[in-house]
């Protein structure tokens, strides 16, 4: 899963999530798959909501933890999917959720807890890491991506 490029944002306060999201959407340049790693409370859902706003979604829905997938239409013909795989535990049942078919769509995918669906993650997935820094309420955000 080696990617060509790495972009790192350090000491990011909550207020700056939207400007980081704007830069990130420009780096991706086209609909792509983003697997997002970060512990509970790191800000994954909040950051995906910022990404969706950058893509023109005025009022993103809440966390998809309950429904697993939230689907959005960003502009005519382009979709964005916000997934939270937190509640998926079992590979046999994972296959029956049909996510692998969903991933064949040409759309943005923002996927939280991607390690739960490791077996079906696309090779071309870009990786985003959100970490709480050891001091203060700041985050480090790292994107490993291909152009």
């Amino acid at each position: 899963m080696q990617k060509d490029q790495t972009k790192r944002w350090e000491h990011v306060p909550l207020e700056s999530l939207s400007s980081v999201a704007a830069e990130l959407v420009k780096l991706l340049s086209k609909p792509s798959f983003v697997a997002i790693q970060g512990e509970m409370g790191a800000g994954k859902t909040t950051f995906v909501q910022a990404l969706l706003r950058e893509l023109g979604i005025k009022q993103p829905d809440g966390s998809p933890t309950y429904a697993i997938v939230h689907e959005y239409v960003t502009k005519p013909g382009t979709k964005a999917f916000h997934l939270d795989c937190y509640r998926i535990e079992n590979e046999r049942d994972l296959a029956q959720l049909g996510l692998d078919e969903l991933f064949e769509e040409n759309a943005y995918f923002f996927v939280e807890w991607p390690d739960k669906i490791e077996k079906i993650l696309p090779e071309h997935a870009n990786w985003l890491y959100i970490r709480c820094e050891p001091e203060g309420e700041l985050r480090e955000i790292v994107l490993n991506y291909d152009n």
């Binding site: 909550l14 512990e39 509970m40 409370g41 790191a42 800000g43 859902t45 966390s63 709480c132 050891p134």
Partner: peptide, 13 residues
């Protein structure tokens, strides 16, 4: 409730 989660995370850290 997301800010609360983060706040709990930092307190525990």
């Amino acid at each position: 409730f997301s800010g609360l989660k983060t706040s709990i995370l930092y307190t525990i850290r």
